[in-house]
Amino acid sequence: MSWLFGGSKKNDSNTSASAEHQQIVQDEGKAQHALGFDPSQVTNVSSIISTPGALDPSRLHPLAGLERGVEYLDLEEEQLSTMEGSRSLIPSRGWTDDLCYGTGAVYLLGLGLGGSYGFFEGLKNIPPNSPGKLQLNTVLNHITRRGPFIGNNAGVLTLTYNLINSSIDALRGKHDAANSVVAGALTGAIFKSSKGLKPMAYASGMVAAAAATWSGAKSFIL
């Protein structure tokens, strides 16, 4: 505790000369601790440079804060979202990132799934004994009929889901599975809102189940 209350008790017993000497040694030790080298040893520039520890970046100047290593610029718009529970598979900076990445991923997934379904459907429906160009065209037609249809619908669903989800997140100030399920239910209801109550309920349940599955999978992966 000598650093707090002053370590003068031991010095009392010493003679004044030795106390003085000790004081000088202590000062030198302090200076060496602060500067990284012993200032009494320094005579010219070359001896500063050659002194071990003189150019240690962590001791150059305390205000420079160099001992923390390289610090990258913290740009305001690069800040990750700090909302509770908002961590997802890809780092997100806010609702626009969630929207773009979510919609893009699900749209591509739907496009790919629908496209491969159309591919096999087209392979089955190739007219017999047809030339190669017609065969290619048949397959391509089936791909471009199925792929964009499923992709567009999945994309619109995800777009609505993400908009509602981010709104609920912003209102509640946090994100959890309940938000996802509610957003999914609302999305399904809106998606089938022009078909009557029963399809609305079915779609609502299905999208809510999908959202719950996604939330569960996310918590399992993370």
Partner: peptide, 8 residues
Amino acid sequence: LSDFGGAF
């Protein structure tokens, strides 16, 4: 992915 989603 982000551009797909954003453009969509």
